[in-house]
Write a protein that binds this DNA or RNA. Sequence first.
DNA 1: CGTGTAAGGAATTCTGACACG
DNA 2: CGTGTAAGGAATTCTGACACG
Lengths: 102, 102
Amino acid sequence: MSYKDKKVITIGIVSELTGLSERQIRYYEERKLILPDRTKGGTRKFSFLDVERLIDIANKMEDGMQTFEIRKMEKEEKKRTDRKTRDQMIRGQINAAFNIRK
Amino acid sequence: MSYKDKKVITIGIVSELTGLSERQIRYYEERKLILPDRTKGGTRKFSFLDVERLIDIANKMEDGMQTFEIRKMEKEEKKRTDRKTRDQMIRGQINAAFNIRK
DNA sequence: CGTGTAAGGAATTCTGACACG
DNA sequence: CGTGTAAGGAATTCTGACACG
């Protein structure tokens, strides 16, 4: 949707933006912590959101967390976010039905 | 500042995003219509703003405009924008001085 | 488990030039 | 003027493996 989610950044740039080595970035992909796109030739393409995630991952790794724990944590965060979004949509429906302004 | 201005996209991706050939993009740079950054190795890096500019340029070229005309037009637009920004800042100062809410 | 590294190859990008118009 | 293309080389990225721990 927005620029933040467009997968357009190659790994070298991502490495610079995050301070992580290319090796680390590829490993985190292997562990399913990030899911870059690929060009036809096979070159990885990342989004700014991926870059943010990687910085977050880097912090968690520094705190001694392991990749599988980080993966779990991210999934739970997503659940929470989805739940919130759903609630807000329902509230929106209700407000619309009663023609209420917030 | 924002993601829109970060120079992180290589020419192949820009080509896909804009529909322009790499040749065209390099030529527009030569004519100073865009100013990508470079990696240490010399590879060009573009921003999303550059991509937007290129799409705009492509439209103007289709309309038969020449590169030097486009360059001029962009400069004038920038002037107009800067003038507007300046006016708004001055208004901001005045409002602050008189403690006025808009 | 997480990361560095050397290895060999493939994809990507670069420049300068010639061509056409 | 604007753009395509073939040419040769350089920078970038890729994978699978070995190493250490």
